[in-house]
């Protein structure tokens, strides 16, 4: 397996104040690959959606830990794993459908749609009662410097 050139792990409780902290922390870490502002805001948006899902759905009526792991690769690939040990998703396919939500009238049901379109690859693994792992992959264009 390909070895990352750098790696970061972060564990935060599922408090909504940590949504902005998590996306900014991941963005700060991946900045060393010199992404464009657009690439950086894509990553921030996708991470924000995944972390919000842990808080709103995974740990709906409770506070649990959110585990974030970001890895950077030589070829410019970024891999961010966001994991919770919350309630899990019974039907991942249905949960990923645009506009599907169990979160009430002010949730748009677009979290997975946003993650999918703002990254190159999205993987969702979930076991009801055990938790959910979302893996986001994005390729950063390597720019040459003088």
């Amino acid at each position: 397996m390909e070895k990352p050139i750098n790696e970061m792990r972060l564990v935060v409780p599922s408090r909504s104040a940590n949504e902005s902290f998590a996306r900014v922390a991941v963005a700060a870490f991946v900045s060393q690959l010199d992404p464009t502002l657009d690439e950086l805001s894509d990553i921030k948006t996708a991470v924000s959606e995944a972390v919000t899902n842990c808080i709103v759905h995974g740990y709906r009526d409770t506070i649990g830990s959110i585990y974030i792991n970001a890895r950077l690769f030589q070829n410019g690939k970024i891999c961010v794993k966001i994991h919770d040990t919350g309630c899990g998703i019974a039907d991942v396919k249905q949960a990923m459908e645009p506009l599907y939500t169990t979160g009430g009238s002010d949730r748009s049901g677009l979290g997975f749609t946003v993650m999918e379109s703002f990254t190159d690859k999205l993987r969702v693994r979930s076991t009801p009662g055990k938790g959910t792992t979302v893996t986001l992959e994005k390729h950063i264009e390597r720019r040459t410097h003088d």
């Binding site: 996306r23 805001s41 921030k44 948006t45 924000s48 959606e49 919000t52 009238s105 002010d106 949730r107 748009s108 677009l110 979290g111 749609t113 946003v114």
Partner: peptide, 13 residues
């Protein structure tokens, strides 16, 4: 400066 899909819920509501 930043908005995720929570902003969509806000606009739609």
């Amino acid at each position: 400066g930043f908005m995720d899909s929570s902003g969509i819920g806000l606009i739609m509501g």
